[in-house]
Each structure stands twice: as C-alpha cells, then as structure tokens.
C-alpha cells in the first residue's frame, strides 16, 4: 500500500518569496507526522497544498493516492481539516454547527458524541461567537473529526488551550491514532509533538532541515548529556557522551548521595532551536 501522504520536491513561491522549497516527505497510514517550524516557515502553505486549497508551482503531492489539486468530493469526504479559523459561524450554536456539518459526510459520527469528545457538552447551546479561544478551537477540532477522516490535518490545534484542555485533546488524538487515523500536525508546542508524533519534521525557510522520530531527531539520542552536581559550595557540570560511566566514577568519590546530581539530556525544544540556529548560520 502506498503511503497516506506522499510529497515529492514540492515548490511554491508567492512572487519573489519562496514559501515551500523542494519539500519531500511521506506519512504512512496510521502515522502522525508533526511539522515544526517558526511562523512563516512554510508549514501552513504545505498543509494547504495537501488539503487542496493551494496549488503548488512544481513537485508532486498525493493524499490517499490523489493529487489534492484534483481531489473530488469522495476524496474530500475521507479528509478532516482543522483550519486556523476562529471567527466564522459566530451566530450559530455549537450543537447547530456540529449537527449541520455532520450532514456533509457520508458516515459521520454522532454530533453529541463529538461535542462530548471535545469537552463542549456544557457549551452545546452557546453561540460560537461567545466561546473562549480554547473552546472555539475545540469546536474546530470537532468539525475536523466529525466525518471519521482517514487523514486528519491539524493546523496548530491547541493554540489557546489551557494545560488541562491540551492534555484532554492529546488523549482524544491518541484515540484517533489508535483507530488508525493518519495525522499531519503543525504545532508550536514541542511537548505536543513529542507526545503525539511518531516523527517530526523541522521546517525552516521553506525547507525541511531534519525529519526523524522525536527521540532521535538532530542526533538527540547520541548527543552529549550534561551531568551537574555540587562539591562543597561549588556547582560543577560536565558534558559527556558516557554519562553512566561518569556518574559511576563520581559515585565512588562521594561516600553517600552525590549532592544535587542531575543528568540532563537535550529536550526536543533544545534540539529544535539548535537545528534552527544551524539553518540560520548556513
């Protein structure tokens, strides 16, 4: 079976500004790929080419085997799109909106179940325009998952969520993944990518600079660890590629506990920022 999403040498410019520069990647069925990158890096343009909203200048894209520029209604019914839109449909209530949008899909989920799944049951009778930013975002997610999509596009889905709502959202997405949904996620939250994505692709100035599992990207697994501890009044640190060996040696020098011992491996955020920095210095 061919991958759910296949992108090959995709290129898109607006006038002189290159938004997407020879981008290639694949997303397997049931996989979640996170696109990470600063604002203006080309994440949304890439996503919207795959959703069929924009046309690439060159290169090829296939979503479920179909060129998005030529996707028909049957193809669209297999996608779920969560846009970065938060002002439309303001005069309708949550339930009216979800029930209405359910009509478009051949095999949609039950509207009330979807409202419950995104945690908006208490707000079902509220006008969309009166929702908070995070609640409004959850409505968008509800509309995206309503049609039981095979491929779900999530464009910065948790912007404006409080931490508890974000965790609930992650649980929901993990359920969808367990059901086999393929997900293309763009996000600014590294923790979110680490939790949800099987692979992350770091995109900067229209180019993919690294693409790997969150635990391995940018040689994260092999990167030097920082061991820090205290001797007397002095805080000491040591960068080492063999932290276990180093700590063992350290332990022999101290009678009991090593004071203030920490072994720090680089976080995804640190790797991400160093990748962007390397790209900028290139």
């Amino acid at each position: 079976m061919s991958p759910a999403i296949e992108v090959d040498s995709l290129h898109k410019a607006y006038g002189d500004v290159v938004a997407v520069d020879e981008v290639s990647f694949t997303v397997e069925h049931g996989e979640c790929l996170a696109l990470l990158g600063p604002n203006g890096a080309g994440k949304t343009t890439t996503t919207e080419i795959l959703e069929g909203y924009r046309k690439a200048d060159s290169g090829s894209a296939r979503v479920l085997g179909v060129d998005p520029a030529k996707g028909d209604l049957t193809w669209k019914a297999r996608l779920g799109i969560v846009l970065q839109a938060d002002r439309d449909l303001g005069d309708l209530t949550v339930r009216e909106t979800v029930s209405h949008f359910a009509d478009y899909f051949p095999d949609s989920r039950d509207p009330d179940e979807v409202i419950a799944a995104v945690g908006l049951t208490e707000k079902a009778k509220a006008r969309n325009g009166k929702l908070s930013g995070g609640q409004r975002r959850r409505l968008d997610v509800a509309l995206g998952i309503l049609g039981r999509p095979e491929v779900l596009f999530l464009d910065e889905p948790t912007t404006g969520f409080d931490p508890a709502a974000r965790r609930d959202f992650w649980t929901l997405i993990e359920q969808l993944k367990a059901e086999g949904t393929t997900i293309l996620l763009t996000t600014h939250y590294l923790e979110e990518a680490e939790r949800l994505a099987d692979r992350v692709a770091v995109i900067a100035r229209g180019r993919i600079v690294a693409c790997d599992a969150p635990g391995r990207i940018g040689n994260r697994a092999d990167a030097q660890a920082i061991v820090s501890w205290r001797e007397g009044d002095i805080d000491l640190t040591e960068a080492t590629s063999e932290p276990t060996e180093f700590v063992r040696a350290l332990a022999e020098r101290f009678a009991g506990e090593i004071p203030a011992l920490q072994v720090h491996r680089p976080t995804l955020e640190e790797i991400y920022l160093s990748l962007l920095k390397m790209e900028e210095e290139r």
Binding site: L89, L143, G147
Partner: peptide, 15 residues
C-alpha cells in the same frame, strides 16, 4: 465570509 474563512471551510468540505 471570505475574510473569516467561512468560504474556505466550505470549500474543504465534501459539498
């Protein structure tokens, strides 16, 4: 509706 993405949302639906 074009500004607030109402139309964009519709264009992405199987409608």
């Amino acid at each position: 509706e074009r500004d607030d993405s109402t139309l964009k949302r519709l264009a992405g639906l199987p409608m």
